[in-house]
Design a protein around this nucleic acid. Structure first.
Lengths: 258, 258
DNA sequence: TCGATCCCTTTGATAAGATATTTAGGACAA
DNA sequence: TTGTCCTAAATATCTTATCAAAGGGATCGA
């Protein structure tokens, strides 16, 4: 870092003291890892807001006293973790990223796949998310939310005889419930889990199943419109526990070769 | 591994057909983004398992027909998203990553900070996770889990007069409950949320609060030992709703300047 | 005023080479 | 035979240098 005679004392590098250190492991082996660590620390010390410009690749490389390629390595990592955004062109450079819940959902989904989470673990988490969301929806849903729920229900009813299409409509309905909770964390987690669970649901569908699902949806809308969080929670919990046992039962049956 | 100059016909690149396409947006603007997309697609098509070796930087660059630096860019991104692991040395190279729930927790925490999630959203998600975890713990807890819970309780009781230390012990207790659920998704999400919520909890602590918390912990252990999932769920739900209202109340009071 | 063109900044990509790190395998001693 | 140390090879890491592409802004002409 000594190689930056005019870069010292200004910019990012000086702010790196022993701050919060949520993710900094302390001993960094590689140079780029150290740069990543420093930038993250600065960002989460709260001095920089989303949209702020950090500078250009080249100027940052100077400030940190590393070559442009090393800086690039670090920036690509930060970009992939969603910490920064990179823009080309004369007004381009490195910017603090706007939060992106779509990316959050994507990252969760990737990791879930890699970790090799069991179906039961996924379903249980789905239950946790949706039960809470249903309760919150009953408290927080706006008129627009309720209209969206009715629309989703109508669409699902229309498709009750087309197994695959119905599954998508049903998931959309559940998504509307989660959206009505007005909780972005729950929403992101729901999206991630849906990605992973989709194949399962599509497989287990049938017109008979679909009709039961529609009845459930109607009842849930009633709870939400009546502003009864506890009733909504219980309804969703009971319903999803049933869905879970059916899915796991099917799974066992399938594995038994029947 | 042949010197495929334009990378056609061998290795990874040929497997890239229009598969599942969960995350591939189709038109890629940059070369490295295209490489990232191709590798991700191949990985999630299921042909490769965690721990598999993809090759060295150089050989992959040859296979994809790009320069080593472009390949590096792509690899750094994939590494940051936890898709691959990179090892140095004679037996090193690029490997499919083992799932890493610690990384999952870290990524979730980063994104939560960036998105600027509200305290209420975080607390509600925490409630969702812990209620489900408590119910599962009552069903699944092993002898070792229950011993860990007792140990955590004893430690918390010991620290009841030291606000800061007690907060850590209490969070540890909650962590033990989540661990006893034997659900890794819930566990990762709990860790991520804990990172972000920690400062809040530390602030709102006092010996009086601590004694109520210990009483709750004792009751929860009883439910788990008695294998009563519903009782455990209700207990945790009631308790965390109380904690939430206290936190949000404190917040409002603080903001009002008193 | 409007539109096209040029120019400058910044990232994207390539190339060649030096350095650090890890591990396999051999050499040597007990 | 066994354990330890050393070397060599494979590999990522890092550096320097160069050119191409993209994107705004300014200039010039109609």
């Amino acid at each position: 870092m000594q190689k930056a005679p005019d870069a010292e004392g200004s910019g990012l590098t000086q702010m790196v003291g022993p701050a919060e250190r949520l993710w900094s492991s302390g001993k960094q082996t590689t140079l780029s890892a150290s740069v990543i660590d420093q930038i993250r620390t600065v960002l989460f010390a709260g001095r920089l807001a989303p949209g702020d410009r950090l500078g250009s690749e080249a100027s940052l490389a100077l400030q940190f006293g590393v070559s442009r390629m090393t800086m690039r390595d670090a920036l690509r990592s930060l970009q992939a973790s969603g910490v920064i955004e990179v823009k080309v062109g004369i007004k381009g450079g490195i910017f603090v990223a706007e939060g992106n819940s779509e990316r959050l959902a994507e990252t969760i989904a990737i990791q879930l796949k890699l970790i090799g989470i069991s179906t039961e673990e996924l379903l249980d988490t789905q239950i946790a998310i949706e039960v809470m969301a249903a309760g919150l929806a009953a408290s927080n849903a706006t008129g627009a939310d309720i209209k969206a729920l009715h629309d989703a229900l109508a669409e699902a009813e229309r498709l009750v005889d087309d197994a695959e299409e119905f599954t998508w409509a049903a998931i959309n309905f559940h998504g509307c419930v989660v959206a009505a909770s007005h909780n972005r964390v729950l929403a992101a987690q729901f999206r991630a889990l849906s990605h992973v669970l989709m194949p399962l649901y599509v497989r287990g569908s049938s017109p008979d199943v679909a009709r039961r699902a529609v009845a459930f949806q109607r009842a849930l809308i009633a709870c939400i419109e009546a502003r009864e969080p506890d009733a909504a929670r219980n309804l969703v919990y009971g319903r999803l526990q049933f869905v879970k046992s059916r899915q796991l039962g099917d799974l066992a049956k399938g594995e038994a070769g029947d």
